[in-house]
């Protein structure tokens, strides 16, 4: 029986999942900060950011966040499925 080895594997997996959840928790805060960056832009003078640049910036943030979020969510789902399979228990709603 390789129970011992699989336990080590499982704990490592759980640890990774916890950190993934931390990352998922952090994402909206990062997003908020990035989207509040326009508040720092100079309102007038030569340093003023043009509207077209602003559009590109805001949508770029959006796009990157969506992609990262999609990857993390899928990874979380996969991690949970793997863990459940490991434990041999049916799929249950996420506990925290």
């Amino acid at each position: 029986m390789s129970t011992g080895r699989s336990m080590i594997f499982l704990e490592r997996q759980t640890y990774r999942r916890r950190r993934l959840i931390d990352w998922i928790r952090m994402l909206p805060i990062i997003g908020l900060i990035l989207w509040l960056v326009p508040l720092l832009w100079p309102v007038d003078g030569s340093g003023q950011v043009s509207t077209s640049d602003a559009v590109v910036y805001l949508f770029a943030v959006w796009f990157v966040l969506v992609v990262i979020k999609a990857i993390s969510s899928t990874a979380l789902a996969r991690a949970r499925r793997a863990e459940d399979a490991e434990r041999g228990k049916p799929d249950q709603p996420e506990q925290n």
């Binding site: 928790r25 909206p28 805001l58 959006w62 966040l65 979020k69």
Partner: peptide, 13 residues
């Protein structure tokens, strides 16, 4: 649309 996006990004909270 940014506000709701942030709420959904922060679904875990």
């Amino acid at each position: 649309y940014i506000g709701p996006s942030l709420v959904l990004f922060g679904w875990w909270w």
